[in-house]
Design a protein around this nucleic acid. Structure first.
Length: 823
RNA sequence: GCGGAGAUACCGAAGCGGUCAAACGGGACAGGUUUAGGACCUGUUGGCUCAGUGCCUUCAGAGGUUCGAAUCCUCUUCUCCGCACCA
């Protein structure tokens, strides 16, 4: 056979789909289905096979739903703000926009070559002013609702990114993008979104049945809801209360000192006038400057200094020293009560010779902590704990919390690990924060009518934030008093852009509103959201937050952005490692499709394993897919289109049911196996009915759309297979009898071959003796048995008097298992 | 430390109480076909037995539940991945 010209076929159908606007959709009466893949950052290096894998998963699903009669919204866009483009622009002394748009056009071209059925008329790009205008608009709406504030506080600063980072972007004290760089703590005046107002609702996962448990657990962990008590220690000699959050109020009688975070806003006031004021402050500053990695590291010895001040334990009025320590973070109240029942507190106390007291032991017997070498962290029985002595500490805990509250020594509180979202970035390539500073009027939001605040087209990129030196950007008029004013130069975190993009797809060209409520109302929520697990604690929390906010201002009626979330696996390089340029194991779709055709690649990616599993690219593996596709093409070129046997009809209809179910549940690998199996059955038949051939092509088309279109037109169809109706199984035609017969035949073939080998007869005659009820089966399939087994098959019924049976084998025949004699 | 996912024949990967020596693909091997093939077709691929229908040992390891377990339970080992001085 001639070599298949994949490129020609692909180009042809991509062109026809585009021309016929096959995949463009409008709101309508039909039931909608919204398939969405997380939109990518358009990196300069373009798409690799891993992206192709990801988008193929969505494309198969979109095609499947479309053929099943849904009005399918399947859009694509680009998360096109971000540091890499800016850094590239700095290097090349150019503008990031240039880089970004070049990368995007490259991406679009590549995506089209993958045969993805996007509605390109809805393309969005977050770096475009008509998109980020609405980032700014949402910011202003949040401001109105009191969900935006600016505050000076200690923030994470990455010296390499030269910007602050959100908590979510700091991992183990290192920058997410620069794993080798410690994040520094800086005190800066920054903009925050009050996501914590939604902490409680975000922690409710009841409406996310369609999301993987894994993701929900990660989010729950991240939100970190904990029940505890704020205990009010009185600053000695004053009436000032120092609240200290604890989940272990059962150890209150064990407390022998307080620890305060070095960056605590109260610290300056606290040490004012004490003997070593300067020394303490300097030390605290030193501690605060330590990298989070060091402070968070379990192995490093903790440091601290006595503040010279004391506090009173409310339950027993004991006077206890207050220390500044690096292990106290600005979590909870930033003040920690410390006792002998915590490893870290214990070690610290030993180091600084602070006395310790145990109040729990295994059996309730009194134990002296100062004589112990380590903390007692297990549960046990309380002692020296007032009226709670001799109770189990676990049981006493809730009672003690109530008791503290009743005596006004404390208050039961719920604490979240989730913090407000710091969105300020000191970089150029992001959405400008729509704020103006006026000497007279102070902080003034830019009025909606003046949006968007656009990024300047000409800037001097270089050190620091170029907006700071672009006078045409900074200098403006105060919207209130029309006097001279300066613009905010910080831009927004790019995660802001991706927090609502799925809504803009519903109405991407709207100039007057963020989106039309009716249109969005038709399309949202997303029915199938596809993306990586790594977004569990960032994007997927933010997008939920934005959805809830937009609901609360009346724009949406939904509570969650997506009904179903699917985390695809990662495609590794042939070496089993994560694909990366530096490792040199990146596989490019262009190379692959040139050699094998893109449909072959799609089929291979999807048949290797379940799509949620990580897989390794394999040059060898793809050969199997190529072989199959070739066979299909050859077959369709010579198939006799007539009428299917009842056996084939049974098989087709059975397999339709199975494949439909498999694809619905994203078990593409199993669906492909069944498609292959169906094809194998076709090949064994002399002729096939058109309807069955078409059912095959339809199912095949979601995986291999170009080849399917080609063959579809080959069987005389004028319309697109991509827009045809998914086959419906005629269950009446499914007959188990045929399966059983097929099984009998294949066992018989195996048996003949087996005996042939053992008897070492090359081209034997095979006399088979079947029970009399199976006469038709064996007679009708005599030819099939002969070709398949490589013997000349002569069937006899057991009771046939004229049968040739020199060794009396026919006695061995069983139902479905004929006896065999070779010669 | 806490939390999650997993361990299946040479490899990848289905199976998730009986129909399981375990789908399917890759590889390897054998045979056929062909001028020749890395192309195509057919078969084999746990062990034993053998002119096929049989038997035995397997699904990380050890126990257990059951008439019956790759599948359910318990513990152990190993791998991967999140979170982590969270008070």
């Amino acid at each position: 056979m001639k070599k298949i010209n994949f490129a020609k076929i692909e180009k042809k159908w991509q062109g026809r789909w585009a021309k016929a606007k096959c995949f463009q959709v409008k709101e309508g009466k039909k039931k909608k289905y919204y398939v969405l893949e997380m939109y990518p950052y358009p990196s300069a290096s373009g798409l690799h096979m891993g992206h192709a894998f990801n988008y193929t998963i969505g494309d198969v699903y979109a095609r499947f739903k479309r053929m099943n009669g849904f009005n399918v919204l399947y859009p694509m866009g680009f998360d096109s703000f971000g540091l890499p483009a800016e850094n590239a622009a700095i290097k090349a002394k150019s503008h990031p926009k240039k880089f970004t748009e070049k990368a995007i056009s490259n991406y679009v071209k590549q995506m089209k070559e993958l045969g993805l059925s996007y509605d390109w008329s809805r393309l969005i790009m977050s770096h475009k002013p008509d998109y980020y205008k609405w980032d700014q608009w949402i910011f202003l709406q949040m401001l109105k609702k009191g969900l935006v504030y600016k505050k000076e506080s200690p923030v994470n600063w990455c010296p390499k990114c030269r910007t602050v980072l959100a908590n979510e972007q700091v991992h183990n004290g290192k920058c997410e993008y620069h794993g080798d760089t410690d994040v520094q703590i800086k005190h800066l005046n920054q903009w925050y979104l009050k996501i914590t107002d939604y902490a409680e609702e975000l922690n409710n996962f009841k409406r996310l049945e369609g999301w993987p448990d894994e993701i929900k657990k990660l989010q729950k962990n991240w939100i970190g809801k904990s029940y505890g008590t704020d205990i009010y220690f009185k600053l000695y000699g004053t009436n000032k209360l120092l609240p200290s959050f604890t989940t272990r109020c059962d150890t209150i009688y064990s407390v022998t000192f307080l620890a305060i975070a070095p960056e605590h806003p109260l610290l300056n006031e606290l040490v004012r006038g004490v003997k070593d004021e300067k020394k303490i402050k300097d030390f605290a500053q030193k501690l605060a400057r330590e990298s989070l990695a060091d402070r968070v590291n379990e192995e490093k010895v903790k440091k601290g200094i006595f503040t010279g001040k004391y506090a009173l334990n409310p339950v027993n009025n004991e006077k206890i020293p207050i220390y500044v320590t690096n292990f106290a973070l600005m979590y909870g109240s930033g003040i920690v009560m410390c006792d002998a029942h915590d490893k870290r507190d214990f070690r610290f106390a030993k180091k600084y010779k602070i006395p310790l007291k145990f109040v729990i032991s295994k059996d309730g017997r009194k134990v002296d902590a100062n004589k112990s070498a380590e903390a007692y962290v297990d549960d046990g029985i309380l002692f020296n704990s007032g009226k709670f002595s001799s109770m189990k500490n676990k049981e006493a805990l809730p009672k003690m919390a109530n008791w503290l509250e009743k005596n006004r020594w404390g208050k039961k509180v719920i604490n979240y690990k989730l913090k407000d979202w710091l969105i300020s970035r000191q970089r150029f390539w992001g959405t400008p924060i729509p704020i103006v500073y006026c000497d007279k009027c102070g902080v003034v939001p830019v009025p909606e009518s003046q949006l968007p605040v656009k990024l300047p087209d000409t800037v001097k990129l270089g050190k620091g934030n170029p907006l700071k030196t672009t006078l045409s950007f900074i200098n403006t008029k105060c919207p209130k008093c029309k006097g001279k004013a300066k613009r905010e130069t910080d831009t927004m975190d790019t995660f802001v852009n991706s927090s609502w993009y799925y809504l803009r797809y519903c109405d991407p060209k709207n100039k007057r509103a963020i989106f039309d409520k009716k249109k969005a109302g038709y399309w949202v929520p997303v029915d199938m959201y596809i993306g990586g697990r790594e977004h569990a604690c960032m994007h997927l929390i933010y997008i939920r937050f934005y959805t809830k906010f937009l609901r609360d201002i009346g724009l949406l009626k939904i509570n969650e952005p997506a009904l179903r979330l699917f985390n695809q696996g990662m495609l590794h390089g042939p070496d089993g490692e994560k694909m990366s340029k530096s490792k040199g194991n990146v596989v490019l779709p262009e190379q692959v499709s040139k050699k094998y055709g893109i449909d072959t690649a799609r089929l291979f990616l999807v048949s290797l394993a379940s799509p949620d599993k990580d897989i390794d690219w394999s040059e060898k593996g793809i050969q199997g897919s190529l072989k199959f596709i070739k066979k299909v093409i050859i077959y369709f070129n010579k198939v006799k289109v007539k009428k299917s046997s009842a056996r084939i009809e049974s098989k087709v209809n059975k397999v339709i049911l199975e494949i439909t179910d498999d694809i619905e549940n994203l078990r593409y690998n199993l669906a492909v196996i069944k498609i292959r199996g169906l094809f194998d059955s076709f090949e064994k038949e002399r002729e096939i009915g058109k309807k069955d051939l078409e059912s095959f092509l339809k199912m095949f088309s979601v995986f291999c759309p170009h080849i399917a279109e080609e063959l579809w037109s080959g069987v005389g169809e004028k319309e697109f297979v991509s827009l045809s109706d998914w086959p419906v199984a005629d269950e009446k035609k499914i007959n188990k009898k045929f399966e059983r017969e097929e099984e009998i035949l294949s066992i018989t073939v195996n048996d003949i071959i087996n005996i042939k080998r053992l008897a070492m007869i090359k081209k034997p005659k095979a006399y088979i003796y079947h029970l009399s009820g199976e006469t038709n089966l064996f007679r009708n399939n005599k030819d099939f048995l002969s070709t398949a087994s490589g013997a000349i098959v002569v069937p006899f019924a057991v009771n046939d008097k004229k049968k040739h049976d020199p060794e009396g084998k026919s006695k061995k025949a069983k139902a479905g298992k004929p006896a065999i004699y070779l010669e």
